[in-house]
Simulated assay, not measured.
Amino acid sequence: MELPLFFHDDPISVNDLVSLSPDASKHIGQVLRLRTGDAIKLTDGKGNFWIATITSNDKKNSIVRVLDHTIVPGPEISVTIAISLLKNAGRFEWFIEKATEIGVSKIIPLICERTERQHFRAERLKNILISAMLQSGQARLARLHDPIEYPKFISEWDGSHHQFIAHCMDGDKKHLADEIARINSGHVDHDARIILIGPEGDFTRDEVEAAIAKKFIAVSLGSNRLRAETAGLVAATLISL
C-alpha cells in the first residue's frame, strides 16, 4: 500500500525529528487516523522522498522521525507550458492542477494582447500545485513563474527547446502529435519542450508571427475548437509523450 505523502520544504536528514505543519498534522490524525508508529512519506518538491514514522500524534503538531531518504531522478523530458492568464480564474487553477498531475515541469503565465484578466494569486496557486503534486505521488513540484508580458517573453526567449505555438488561425500548421513523434524518433536522451497557448480569443497574428520569428513551430491540436485551458491540457499531454 502506498504511504501517504506530505510536503515539507525545510531541510531534512535521516534520523531527524521533524515537526509537521498544522494542516498535515490534522490530516494525519483526523482524516487518515494514523497512529504513533505508522509510516508516512515526505517530499520537498525538489526530487527527494523521505520515509518517516510518527513519534507524536498531535492534531496540531505531529512529529515524525526520518528513517530513509531517496533521490528521484529528474524527468527525461522537461515540459514547459506558457499559457495566457484566463478570464475565469477557476479555469486557470484547474489547468495548473491537471498539468502538475501530468508532470509538467514549468508553467509560465502570459499576458497577451487579448488576455482579459491579469489577477494572479501566487500563494493560492502554489498551494494548488503542491496538492496536485502530492495527489499524483510526485517528488518534483512544477515551477510557477510570475506572469510576464508576451512581447517581453518572446524577446527574451533563447530558443533552447523544441518549441511550438498552438493557434486557431488559418495557415501552414503541423499537428503537434506528429511533431512529437518526429522528435521521439530521434532517441534524444534528454530534451526540453515548450508550447505556447493563447487566451480565450487566441493569439493575434502579430503574436504568432513574433513567435515564428523566434523559431517556434506553429501547430494544431486537432480539428475541434478548444477552450484555452483544455488546449493547455491537451498540449501538456501530447508534448509529454
Rank of each mutant, 00 (worst) to 15 (best):
T36C: 13
T53L: 12
T36A: 07
A52L: 07
A52N: 03
S220E: 10
D191F: 15
E229D: 07
N15F: 06
T237W: 01
L67R: 02
A231R: 00
I12C: 08
V14N: 05
L238M: 07
V104P: 03
V234F: 12
I54F: 07
S25M: 03
A181V: 13
I108N: 11
H119T: 15
G74A: 06
D44E: 11
I54R: 06
R114W: 06
A99I: 00
K126V: 09
G29D: 02
H145W: 04
P109D: 10
E123S: 06
K98N: 05
I239K: 04
S105P: 05
T55L: 06
R114K: 04
K215T: 13
G159F: 02
I71P: 01
P75W: 10
K98T: 03
G232F: 04
S25N: 00
N88W: 01
M1F: 11
P4Q: 11
I83R: 06
K59Y: 00
I154A: 11
Y150D: 08
I197E: 08
V18P: 02
A82F: 01
D191I: 06
F216V: 03
P151C: 12
A218C: 09
L141C: 01
F203D: 09
V79R: 05
F95H: 04
P4V: 06
G201N: 14
D58C: 05
Q118M: 14
S78L: 14
G45I: 06
A82V: 07
T115R: 04
S223D: 08
G47N: 05
R140A: 12
F153Q: 09
L86F: 10
I96N: 03
T36R: 06
P11A: 14
L110T: 12
E207Y: 07
F7R: 01
I148R: 11
K152C: 02
T53G: 03
D146Y: 04
L134M: 08
I148N: 12
S25K: 02
L110S: 08
M133P: 05
